[in-house]
Design a protein around this nucleic acid. Structure first.
Length: 270
DNA sequence: ACCCTCCTGTCA
DNA sequence: TGACAGGAGGGT
């Protein structure tokens, strides 16, 4: 479910809410999530909250000031809710898989499909994604062109690769390619410098705008406060198969690539 | 690039 | 009942 903008939204919301608080205890409801490392979290203090790829990452201070990292990957259906002590037990907590109890409330992992993953590590290298962050300063148009390299992969599948750019998922891959006027089946390595520049602009523009609107709630994304994202009304192609393109009127097509839906406008994207 | 798997829920 | 769902890892 959550892609870069949704994860960024949650991380930004949580940072001021939980920074400085100590981990009182951990309640692992779903045994699947248990791991040795989780014990290390007890009594650690949260220093910072950030996003790495599609993960929400907590930087903590352990005993003797040793840093410790907790990464939460929500995968398809996970939510990470901040529930202050004042109001526990709300409607959006039907599938609680874990609780990280802090001084003044709890971080609640709610996840019907149980795909979410918790990772604890002593080094940030273990949780850092291999790919470049699409919004970081290093990603210039030239750098993107270099990454696209001689890849024969279709653009849509290339954008989903987390070892190239980290954070783009199924909704934004389609939206970005529409914004760049590029066909999802174009070979990644076949782009001209001009087309790579268009893709670069689209990646940054779409993701930034989605963050500004707190992400997309297509069916069930909720942010850390349990609210929906506002980017849904700006979606141009995702989920709009059979409907007219907002820019040229051609009917939006749905196609399956790598087992997942791709939406695009055959009129605008070539 | 394809298929399946991990899970559970929702919708046609 | 079957298709599909925002992710990712495995194996052909």
């Amino acid at each position: 479910m959550p892609e870069l903008p949704e994860v960024e939204t949650i991380a930004r919301q949580l940072a001021p809410l939980v920074s400085g608080q100590q981990v009182r205890r951990l309640e692992i409801v779903d045994a699947k999530l248990a791991s040795n490392g989780l014990k290390l979290l007890s009594k650690c203090r949260i220093r910072q909250v950030m996003r790495l790829g599609k993960q929400i990452v907590f930087e903590l201070a352990g005993r003797k000031g040793r840093p410790l990292w907790l990464a939460v990957h929500l995968r398809m259906s996970g939510r990470l809710l901040w529930v202050p002590d004042a109001h526990r037990g709300s409607a959006e907590q039907r599938y609680v898989r874990a609780r990280i109890v802090l001084d003044r409330g709890a971080l609640v992992l709610d996840d019907p499909r149980r795909f979410a993953v918790l990772t604890v590590s002593r080094s940030s290298d273990d949780i850092a994604p291999a790919g470049l962050d699409p919004l970081c300063g290093e990603l210039t148009s030239r750098r993107l062109a270099g990454l696209l390299g001689g890849s024969p992969q279709p653009l849509k599948l290339w954008l989903l690769r987390q070892d190239r750019l980290s954070g783009i998922g199924n909704i934004y891959a389609s939206e970005i390619l529409f914004a760049a006027c590029l066909h999802p089946r174009r070979a990644a390595g076949s782009l001209s410098a001009d087309e790579a520049a268009r893709l670069h602009r689209a990646v940054r523009h779409v993701l930034r705008k989605a963050i500004a609107h707190c992400g997309t709630t297509f069916s069930d994304f909720l942010d850390a406060r349990g609210r929906e994202g506002g980017f849904g009304r700006f979606l141009k192609v995702y989920g709009r198969g059979g409907q007219p393109c907002l820019s040229c009127g051609t009917l939006i097509e749905r196609e399956v690539q790598g087992g997942r839906s791709t939406y695009f406008c055959p009129g605008c994207q070539r």
